Amino acid sequence: MTDNTNHHDAASGADEPRERVIGTPSAADGAATATGDPHRRHEGPYPAEETHTRSEETQRKGERIAALWFLIAFLAGVGFFVSYFSFPPNADGDPSVADPGIAQLANVLLGGTLTLSLFAIGAGMTVWARQVLPHYEVSSPYDELPSSKEEKGSFSEFFMRGANESGFTKRPLMRRTLLLAMAPLGLAPIVLLRDTGPLPKDTLKSTTWEDGLHMVVEGTDRRITAADLDEVGSMVTALPESHDPEHGLSMNEQAKTVILLIKMDPQDFGPDMTQQQLDWTHDGIVAYSKICTHVGCPAALYERTTHRILCPCHQSTFDAANGAEVVFGPAHRPLPQLPVRVDDEGYLVAAGDFSAPVGPTFWDAGVED
């Protein structure tokens, strides 16, 4: 198969004008040579000849355009910070009271200003490369991998010559605006760390469970009595009774306080149960956090014959008869136990808070067992 394009070029002659690629210098901007200009050669470790020369006027024009783009990038970066602090992600740190309209506007402003800043820096760098930087054809012949002493000694001179020809050192307008444009983007990741949320401090070590707080069946407001778990092997998912009946518990409170109430034969408790853990039970009723200590999935399955609590996400298995110790799977920490007792009316109530922080193991960082 023949190349029709090559035949057309040969027939048309060398004097016929060719289509110029967008972004490359025009004939008015400088002369393109095939063999290079001997006085525009690098004397570094690799032969390099300039293929496009540009007039000083063209380079100054490119410097001004690139500086304009960098200035736009800086202003867009400042706009990003203004948008970020003017439209906080939520009110008082509670996402449930955030205004959807304001959140949408904030997303548009944040995304738009960041996009414009990055685009402007890219556009400025493109103009810099197209209109200011010299273009060289570099040949690198195959030779021995270790560099000679002459090549090593000439590298620093070669590097500095390239830096000078790039315009970075001798064109302060372009250099300063580039550094100015990069400043907001460099500070943005530090500021955005605020969105990781406030430090947990001691909030992970405690929940709303407290001595005397009634237990209710999950999804209802019905209090639980010891008689509700009269049969050995019974299991109920429970939550603390809300102090605000009108609004109930928040989703965050529910996630931290949900428990499994399990009825066991007191003789089935294993040797690993400490006396304190046994004191936290009532007539064989034991309460454990339902949140798996691996990644926080609900450990909702219970096998009454083996007393095993299973998390279906990654098969972490806990022994309810031995303080919910891990017997299988990726979890490394037992399910926290909630002390329970019965009030004067026969209702199950908490006798305090959990024995350890609830949830994945990383929540327990720095906390002694």
Rank of each mutant, 00 (worst) to 15 (best):
M251I: 15
D230I: 09
T225D: 05
T225S: 15
M235Q: 13
D228N: 13
Q254M: 04
H247N: 06
E246I: 15
V236C: 11
P240V: 10
I224C: 04
D228S: 15
S234V: 04
I224L: 11
H247V: 07
H247W: 15
I224N: 03
G233T: 14
G248T: 09
E231A: 14
V236I: 15
D244M: 02
E231T: 14
K263E: 03
S250C: 06
L249W: 10
I224R: 05
V258L: 05
T225P: 04
S242Y: 10
N252R: 10
G248A: 06
A238L: 00
G248R: 13
L239T: 01
D230V: 03
A255C: 00
M264E: 03
T257P: 00
L261T: 03
I262E: 03
L229H: 01
Q254A: 00
N252G: 08
L249T: 08
T257Q: 06
M251Y: 13
P245M: 04
I262Y: 02
A226V: 07
L239N: 13
I262V: 12
E253R: 07
M251S: 14
V236Y: 05
M251A: 13
A227R: 14
I224V: 14
L239A: 03
T257V: 00
E246G: 08
I224T: 10
D228A: 08
L229N: 05
M251K: 14
S242C: 11
T257A: 06
V236D: 02
L229S: 12
A227C: 14
L229W: 00
H243K: 07
K263P: 00
E241H: 03
M235G: 03
L239E: 09
L249F: 13
S234H: 13
M235T: 10
M235V: 11
L260G: 02
H243C: 00
L229A: 13
D228P: 08
D230R: 11
L261E: 09
E231Y: 10
D228M: 09
V236R: 11
A238E: 00
I262F: 05
A238C: 05
I259L: 14
A227V: 14
T237P: 07
A227H: 10
H247F: 07
S250I: 12
L229V: 07
M251E: 09
E241L: 15
L261P: 01
L260I: 01
V232D: 02
E241N: 01
G248S: 12
L239F: 12
M264K: 07
V258C: 02
D228G: 11
K263G: 12
V258K: 11
E246Y: 12
T257K: 07
Q254N: 02
M264Q: 10
K256Y: 01
P240H: 08
A238K: 02
M235H: 15
A238Q: 00
S234Y: 06
T225Q: 11
A227F: 06
I262S: 04
S242F: 11
I259C: 05
A255E: 07
L229F: 03
V258Y: 01
M264C: 02
H247S: 05
G233S: 10
L261G: 01
L260W: 00
